[in-house]
């Protein structure tokens, strides 16, 4: 079942088309990654879905509620974590969470209990009494996520949740995202950390220049750009002298020696492991590791969008530091 359905969504700001005829859906219970460079239309799409922007044309629905017409009903079931922590600087962690819960109509004892539980769960119990302005960036992100889920939303929109925070906090946040998803919350994630998306997401959409250039399950996207099969083998001893005999035995395979104790075999067809293993066995060369090399999501992204990943990272992180 789809929890988000976007159909030919267009959003224009004057002459600028921020989102152009975008269509995609998010399945209930999945982690959906929305990837693209700065200005691609990610935040605009989230803004339309969450009610901060109105579509110029097309429809965006969350749990079958049209976001242009019944946004207040849709907002009941969604949690939103913006790209910048926007809680109240004067309030401490506990008060911030209680206030956010009150916005969803939760009663005093219910919201205080939930706030305490979340502070505990996010490792912020100690910091619960400190004003938000005294929090570190990582703590701010964690508390903002906690505020986004205090009313137990069915879908959580996470906009760049790990940008500009330390490695340990980013790791904790990724773990939280996975835990939340396991407990049944659908996650809509935008990130410019491709490896993060690769690790977390079930399905991914690439958006560039306001248009979706590809959407699909992670495996499917990777298969699409996988033009050859690559197998890497590791040995206990030197094998550089084997290259020519191996090439003779397997003429369809391109052999690359990688260091003294590893080789990489490339083929346009799937590699049959049995004759390969026999070849090494006959020469008394035990294979310690055999790894099928798949393209990374990073390669997929670069291939599909033509965008240099490093440039995208620099742009985003530059923005995050401002």
């Amino acid at each position: 079942m789809n929890i988000v359905e976007v159909d030919r969504l267009t959003k224009k700001y004057g002459d600028l088309t921020a989102v152009d005829q975008v269509s995609f859906s998010v399945h209930e219970g999945e982690i959906f990654g929305f990837l693209g460079p700065n200005g691609a239309g990610k935040t605009t799409t989230i803004n339309v879905l969450t009610g901060l922007a109105r579509p110029t044309s097309g429809t965006a629905k969350v749990s079958r509620f049209d976001c242009a017409v019944e946004i207040k009903k849709a907002q009941q079931i969604m949690g939103i974590v913006p790209d910048e922590s926007n809680l109240y600087e004067e309030f401490d962690g506990f008060e911030n969470l209680c206030f956010c819960a009150a916005l969803y109509g939760m009663k005093k004892n219910e919201r205080e209990k939930k706030a305490k539980d979340l502070l505990e769960q996010f490792g912020l119990a100690e910091a619960g009494k400190k004003p938000f302005r005294a929090y570190s960036r990582g703590m701010k992100r964690k508390l903002t996520i906690a505020a986004g889920i205090i009313h137990d939303p069915r879908i959580l929109f996470l906009d760049e949740p790990t940008t500009g925070i330390d490695v340990a906090s980013a790791r904790q946040i990724r773990q939280m995202i996975q835990n939340l998803n396991r407990s049944g919350t659908t996650i809509f994630l935008t990130t410019h950390y491709i490896e993060e998306a690769e690790r977390l997401c079930d399905r991914i959409a690439f958006i560039v220049g306001g248009k979706i250039v590809r959407v699909g399950p992670l495996d499917e996207l990777m298969r699409e750009v996988q033009q050859e099969n690559v197998l890497q083998l590791a040995f206990a001893e030197g094998i550089s002298n084997l290259k020519s005999s191996l090439q003779q035995e397997f003429p369809d395979v391109v052999v690359e020696v990688s260091g003294n104790q590893a080789i990489r075999l490339r083929s346009s067809r799937p590699l049959n492991l049995t004759p390969l293993m026999r070849f090494f066995e006959e020469r008394n060369l035990p294979v310690y590791e055999a790894r099928i090399m798949r393209p990374s999501l990073e390669e997929v992204f670069v291939k599909i969008t033509g965008i240099e990943l490093e440039r995208m990272k620099q742009e985003k992180e530059g923005k995050g530091k401002q």
């Binding site: 907002q75 913006p82 926007n86 956010c100 505020a147």
Partner: peptide, 14 residues
């Protein structure tokens, strides 16, 4: 400016 007003706009309140 601090975007905390967005939090109110995102709440399910008329």
């Amino acid at each position: 400016r601090s975007r905390s007003f967005e939090r109110l706009l995102l709440a399910p309140l008329d």
